[in-house]
Design a protein around this nucleic acid. Structure first.
Lengths: 198, 198, 198, 198
DNA sequence: GATGAATGAGCTTTCATTCAT
DNA sequence: AATGAATGAAAGCTCATTCAT
């Protein structure tokens, strides 16, 4: 294996390890030594891969956004109705929240609320463009086909992102009386009726 | 004025001052000396009112939840349709986001993402019950009147809380092409169609 | 004693303690904990008096410059010839180098060679103006009286500062075959002949 | 070319590269990786040439001292008066300060003020003997010919080294109202009058 | 000789909290 | 009730040096 590959692999391993720690313990409660320990490397060496904690945080959000975007892209490529796409996206989102909770949690608990960290380098949500782009494609396709009502994209994006994020947050707070899965039908339906053309 | 009143007033002044600082600068970037300075009191004296920074944070979320709940209560008491209520709630929420941004920001940037702080003492969203209760009343009334579809409350609550919070977040990131006000019609409509009975 | 006095006294105690450590161990080899330990105070409290190590370093050079300037001022106020003043200044300088070596050493080993530290806040030697001003007065008086040749001040200042500093440096390196005191006559004479009018 | 020569060449290249970095950025602010980067070699390989940063610093001062000494030697070999020699030495010193500032700077900002680094291995200024020796020859010649007054050598050396170093320092601080060149006449004259026999 | 990833002790600085006054 | 100097444990980050390749 080439050295460049090895280094890239290690970079990704750090991203994934830090992602887990930040998500479960919080950004400020996760220290660089914590991350180094989890990855069985020295603090100094970690800085050979990421020049600061903030830079690492930004790389993580980009990575996470790409992974989430990739998932949604698979849906966008299907030849199915928008209603079915909504159902699939909700399902994917909740299944990720269950199986890789750190990614959704990172959006909610790190990215959303540490403006000072992402201020420089992630202006205008450029760090989450991978995810946004796919939602935009989904929406534009639905509007083009006439299935979805034409409206300002962010009005639809806020619905999707906010609703799903909100549900995962409630799940995390352990106050949902039922499991996330059991909400899929209702939520998909709600989103569909909110967005569909008259 | 009784002494107890005087103390209660100062308590509230502290809550409001700290609320502003936490919202605009972040929880961890706001220090106790910062708060004391803003309130022109000593650090030591501040501890006579709140025994720790975390306790103060919890009191703030309760206070904020009450204020938001009070606003929504005024809507619930009106004899208007659910559709009109949704419109009013959205309007109120966005106007608060514009005029008292610290409250909404506190929800999004402090409460949502510092689980470790609110873990003990705010289990199951008890600290935001003032707000949730009113949304619940709105929803139950709509279901009772037949205007809203009967579904799990949290399915509706997540929509409301997530959608509106998401829009305020996008506004805060300065990526919305239009002002929040201009989204009121679309968003109210979307929420209504999502929740209304068939 | 008033509190303000107490705090000012502590400030000066820190300056003197840090001055000794910086001079004998070097700026970078002296740590903040070292200084705190010497003063029997906590690291955190030290930062209540000086906001950074660099700020402390700048306050020390100002303080040192004042003390040295005060010494030379006593000479300037005497009604004696420039030749006698030179002799007295050399004597004072060497006696300080012997009795309070930390001050001269600080000039030579900290101020002179850590440009990056003094860059902001000490532009154009403003931090050592107390000392320079007195040398300037000495020189101008001598020129006015006709005893010293009229030339660019810095040409004379470089001689004084460089020569005396150089001798103290050589003394510190333990390579002088005789004690500093034994050089007073020769050096005073050399400076006088260098500066005197024809 | 023999291998030994190749290695010697590389050694000198490292010395010159490090000299520039140490002089302009300071000893502690220049890292070994910085030096390696400038020389386009690896950190590890650099250690094949110099066993530590301190050892490198000592080799640099020896090298610098030799180069400066060589310059002065050319003056010593001329059949001119001491007064003329002084003028030439001052001119050479200032021209080096202008054209190869790193050497003079290294004396002033690294050698002079990092006693701990040069403590072991450079006792008694042995590392700068190349330079001192030539000044000593200049002085002895002048005394022998009767042009200069007989006095302790270090009394004269401190004058030379301190005065010229002081002027370059003032130049570096950008506080001299005129260029260094314009001080040559005054300074040469001052030194001559300080040293000449009665 | 040459590489550069890896080490880890050590640095400056921060800040919630305490307590003598 | 009120003050604010004092504490000290931790944080993020640096860098001379080593060593497997």
């Amino acid at each position: 294996m080439k050295i460049v590959d090895k280094k890239a692999l290690k970079r990704e391993a750090i991203i994934q390890g830090a992602l887990q720690l930040f998500s479960s313990n919080g950004f400020h409660r996760t220290t660089i030594p914590d991350i180094a320990t989890k990855l069985q490397m020295s603090v100094g060496n970690l800085y050979n891969y990421f020049s600061s904690k903030d830079v690492l945080a930004k790389e993580i959000i980009k990575y996470t956004s790409e992974v989430l975007g990739d998932e949604i892209r698979t849906v966008n490529m299907l030849e199915i109705s928008s209603r079915e796409k909504i159902h699939k996206i909700v399902t994917i989102y909740f299944s990720m929240a269950k199986e890789k909770p750190e990614m959704i949690e990172y959006f909610l608990r790190v990215y959303l609320s540490h403006r000072e960290v992402f201020k420089d380098g992630c202006e205008g949500m450029t760090c989450v463009s991978g995810f946004i782009t796919e939602i935009m494609i989904f929406f534009d396709d639905g509007v083009s086909s006439g299935e979805l009502r034409n409206q300002d994209f962010f009005s639809a994006f806020g619905l999707f992102m906010g609703y799903l994020g909100g549900m995962v947050f409630l799940e995390g707070e352990a106050i949902l009386p039922r499991s996330l899965d059991e909400y899929i039908e209702d939520i998909s339906r709600n989103i569909y009726y909110a967005l569909k053309s008259v």
